[in-house]
Simulated assay, not measured.
Amino acid sequence: MGSDVVEPGTVRPGGRTARVRASVLQATGDAIAEHGLIGLDLADVAARAEVGKTTVYRRWSSTYGLIADLIASMAEDSSPRTDTGSLEGDLKANARLVATTLADPRQGPVFKAVIAAATCDDRTAEALRRFYDVRIAEWAPCVTQAVARGDLPAGTDAREVIAAVSAPLYYRLLASGAPLDEAAADRAAEAAIVAARAGVYARGR
């Protein structure tokens, strides 16, 4: 890899560089949605984005570089959390957002590709961890607020609760193939709430 290759997710470029990045990452997501991870090709992405192949090869270096930067971009652009004023409302809103995202005909395949790539590429794995760090940190306050209100036991680990909401939905995406609908989302949130109220996620348990 040449010294002029930019490590994906390490900068937020402006001007023409930002436009090129946006076009290339849009093309990457489109290509994954159409052909999956195996069909991802740098030359095809360059053609879709209408940029030179040399630019794509120099900056991203490989399909893994594209995928790592795509998930980094998704973290940068992630939606703010919903604040309903209740733990149940907040966690159901989180679960429904996750389910809607994973069921999307474009976003679902992108997440599958990112997770698959993360199993064999350290850059993608780190970018995926950063993505979830951002999303969990965004939603964790709804749990800490519930603790402050007395809705959950003191010492409840907010990050563990948020992760527990998403976990069964990712299982549906990656393993069971069961529907990612509103009912599944609400059930995931309700299960996490029951466990949290029982003290399952209390630190030092």
Results as ranks from 00 to 15, higher is better:
S166W: 07
R197D: 02
L91D: 07
D30I: 05
A93F: 03
E76D: 13
R19C: 00
V114F: 09
A27M: 03
A75N: 08
W139I: 02
A196R: 03
G29M: 12
E190T: 10
V98S: 09
A27Y: 02
Q145Y: 03
R106S: 07
R106G: 05
A22E: 12
V56H: 14
L174R: 09
V194C: 02
V51I: 13
P153G: 01
T119Y: 11
A93N: 04
T28S: 04
G39N: 00
D77F: 02
L152P: 06
Y64C: 14
R21T: 12
T54N: 14
S3E: 11
K53I: 11
A99C: 05
A198T: 00
A125T: 00
P168C: 08
R81Y: 05
A103G: 14
G85Q: 05
P141H: 10
A27L: 05
V161G: 05
Q26S: 11
R59D: 13
A47G: 14
A47D: 13
A167V: 06
D44C: 05
Y171L: 10
A167W: 07
S86F: 03
A127R: 14
P105L: 05
V143F: 06
I193C: 03
C120N: 12
L173T: 04
V51R: 13
Y201P: 01
G14E: 11
V20H: 13
V98G: 07
L174T: 08
G155H: 01
T119S: 11
I71V: 15
R135T: 10
A33T: 09
P179L: 01
V98E: 13
L40G: 06
G177H: 00
S176A: 00
P179E: 01
A154L: 05
A22K: 10
T55P: 04
E190D: 15
G89K: 10
G155Y: 01
S62I: 03
T17H: 10
V134A: 15
A113F: 09
Y201A: 00
K53A: 12
A191T: 12
R16A: 08
T156G: 09
A49Q: 08
D90G: 09
L173I: 04
R129A: 14
D151R: 02
T17A: 15
L97F: 13
A43Q: 12
W139K: 02
I162Y: 04
Y170P: 06
R48K: 07
T144N: 15
V110S: 05
A184C: 00
P13E: 14
D186W: 01
N94G: 06
A178K: 13
A103I: 04
A43H: 11
A113E: 07
S176I: 00
G177I: 00
G155R: 02
R149A: 11
C120L: 05
V5R: 15
G52E: 12
R197L: 02
V165M: 08
V6L: 13
Q145M: 08
